[in-house]
Design a protein around this nucleic acid. Structure first.
Lengths: 233, 233
DNA sequence: CGCGCCGTGTGACTTTAGTCATAGAACCTG
DNA sequence: CAGGTTCTATGACTAAAGTCACACGGCGCG
């Protein structure tokens, strides 16, 4: 009685912006070429320097892309969730992975081999254009990190983070923010160490700019927060 | 007596990796669509945040792509010479320019409008693939800068720079390096200030690792230089 | 319920980065 | 070759970042 079983990869592929405008036939074909992989929290998807043989797409969960220095410091470059892709960089310039990818929660990813993808780009230039867009956004994001590290003190980076989280948080009234990250994770993302984050938080609280209860933050003085975020210290 | 005059943009277009494999007809057509612009040293080609309407290609000269903080610090993201392109980032993600571009010497550039380029990508997917490669390399380069800023002290960044310059320098015997940059430019590139570069140079010299006469450097102890460059301090 | 782990807070300290001021060398350019 | 401009060197200082050690609270779990 059942209809022809649909490949489980199909709906995921559809959720990837690159492929959205492909004809159904092409998508179905693509789905047959995908492999799936499940990851536990903390598990490595790929490691900096390793050769890249294809593209990963996140079906569910989240992945941190980061480097770790020999001195033990961690820098998170970006975090990706469902519908995002990983490893386009090395895919196209032929080098090894630029950073390591680690699941931060139970995660499943799809994998598509490089040759399949290049072939697809040739037959459907729109796919290549979409990937150009995505890579361009990544360049922009990386440039922001560089500017943060080169120009802004830690306290300012944190203020920026909270400020943006405040704006991004949708439903709640603007003043309240639920942080998703521990201070250690925040530090890895902002390019510093845990202690400095703790102190910067304490300073903001002491000055009455924010109030905290655990990871729940109330922005008491949005104007002053924004002005610190802009570097007007 | 003269043959049909060739568009002066043509040989330049041919030197751009994106276009190398295009048929002659297509190239000629493209050449008619290019505009040319000449820049004096120090002149701005485009400014961070400005809208992007097309792609620049360098015919001759060099361009620094950089941001300047409101505190007056400069960070050079990359420097491009003949055959390189500028502004692919904003071209594809639709945002403003990520950084400002300034000629560091007399420079001429070609300009191709966004619509022409997108059209070209659709008709010749190989162009899109080449641009993907170029953008991917930029992502990688930016990631290197992030890792430098996040992980490595200034002295180490300088050692890396000299070490790499030593390896890159072709004709000369490995031990001698001609620096192309002033200390101030080097600082902007390595994400610090001039004085620290001066001191780091002095330290390397004091320890007998390098010797200097102006911007001419002799690497006296390549092994030690490389070990500092790797962070084994 | 008590133990251990994780996340956090903070004092005290070290190291690295950055600033300011000044002097001298090098290098155009008329 | 004189005189300004640019580049470099360095001392003395301030500020920011990072390290280390330890204490505390909450939470999960045997």
């Amino acid at each position: 009685m059942s209809v022809r079983p649909q490949n489980p990869a199909l709906p995921i592929l559809k959720s990837i912006s690159y492929f959205r405008s492909l004809p159904a036939r092409e998508l179905a074909r693509l789905a047959t070429r995908c492999q799936t992989r499940a990851l536990q929290p903390g598990q490595l998807l790929f490691e900096e320097g390793a050769p890249c043989t294809g593209l990963f797409m996140i079906a569910t969960g989240h992945i941190d892309v980061r480097q770790v220095s020999y001195r033990g410091r961690e820098q998170i470059f970006h975090t990706e969730g469902p519908g995002a892709t990983l490893g386009e960089g090395p895919l196209f310039d032929g080098g090894g992975y630029i950073a390591s990818a680690v699941a931060s929660e139970p995660t499943t990813v799809l994998f598509l081999r490089r040759a399949d993808l290049l072939d697809l780009c040739r037959r459907h230039p729109i796919v290549a254009l979409r990937m150009l867009e995505s890579l361009a956004r990544r360049v922009r994001r990386f440039a922001e990190i560089i500017a943060d590290l080169a120009f802004r003190p830690v306290s300012e980076r944190l203020a920026r983070y909270i400020d943006e989280a405040g704006k991004a948080q949708p439903g709640t009234r603007g003043a309240e923010v639920q942080l998703e990250l521990t201070q250690a994770q925040l530090a890895a993302r902002l390019g510093t160490v845990r202690e400095l984050i703790a102190r910067a938080f304490a300073d903001l609280e002491r000055e009455g700019i924010i109030a905290r209860r655990g990871r729940r933050i109330v922005i008491r003085d949005p104007a002053r927060l924004a002005s610190i975020a802009r570097g007007e210290r």
